[in-house]
């Protein structure tokens, strides 16, 4: 029942995101039938075209926005809308409420990350008449998820802290940009290039990405593990806060 409740609360956001990503992915592949190769770059490899359409040029920002939106919700929001007492009257701990909502949100995020990863290699030969390797799209999906879970956890934490839904949402959406401001101001791009979220998500840590925009090195597992730990710490913080809140 808790799973169903979490699903009901987040399904409209999830379904809107699924529709947007699916329509965009299929639309790009249909367009590639006539738009690829572009006249200004007739020798552009198909893999570089796919990278530009799905993994580069700000697409990581789009995925981050989806992750942030899926992370919002929770008891503070229910407090604002007046339904928190009903939820708290259920014979379960607050920890279970939090864990269920995190699990549903992360599953939704994984589905969205996998959508282009499945659509592009499966439909490229049919719609665009070119092939794109499954391994590449799955690796890019993993890179998107690496920072995606951090953004999800940040949004979850803000929504555990703030009652107003717009306050939590604005705090969540502005967090990546605030982080980039601090990152730039501390000259992080020169000292810690791996800490740039959008560079990492777009495969920028691979030193041999080359003009074909294909990942050739193993995924940055150390950096990804650090991000998982950060996300876990943020979610733990949100859980502790929710448990201690007075409703």
């Amino acid at each position: 029942m808790l799973w169903y409740k979490a699903w009901r609360e987040s399904r409209s956001r999830f379904l809107i995101a699924v529709a947007a990503v699916s329509v965009f992915s299929v639309g790009v592949l249909l367009g590639a039938r006539t738009n690829f190769p572009p006249p200004q770059a007739p020798l552009l490899p198909y893999s570089a075209f796919v990278w530009g359409e799905f993994y580069g040029n700000g697409r990581a920002v789009g995925f981050s926005v989806i992750a942030l939106l899926l992370g919002l919700g929770g008891l503070q929001r229910e407090r604002a809308s007046g339904s928190a007492p009903f939820t708290l009257a259920l014979p379960i701990t607050r920890g279970r409420l939090v864990v269920t909502r995190v699990a549903v949100g992360l599953l939704q995020l994984i589905v969205i990350a996998l959508l282009p990863a499945l659509i592009v290699p499966a439909l490229s030969p049919l719609l665009a008449r070119h092939a794109y390797p499954w391994s590449q799209s799955l690796q890019y999906a993993a890179l998107f998820m690496s920072w995606g879970i951090v953004w999800f956890a940040i949004a979850f934490l803000w929504s555990a802290l703030f009652r107003g839904e717009f306050t939590a949402a604005v705090a969540a959406i502005l967090t990546p940009f605030g982080y980039l401001v601090l990152y730039g101001a501390s000259r992080g791009d020169q000292r810690f290039p791996g800490a740039n979220p959008f560079t990492m998500m777009s495969g920028g840590l691979d030193r041999h990405l080359g003009g074909r925009m294909l990942l050739t090195e193993p995924l940055p597992w150390t950096a990804m593990s650090v991000l998982v730990v950060i996300a876990a710490a943020l979610l733990f913080g949100a859980w502790r806060m929710t448990v201690r809140q007075n409703f």
Partner: peptide
């Protein structure tokens, strides 16, 4: 609120991509 936020932001993201 969250659905309208998602629709609004994803409309922007999709139009930017298009």
């Amino acid at each position: 609120s969250y659905a309208s936020m998602a629709a609004s932001l994803l409309a922007q993201v999709t139009s930017a991509a298009v």
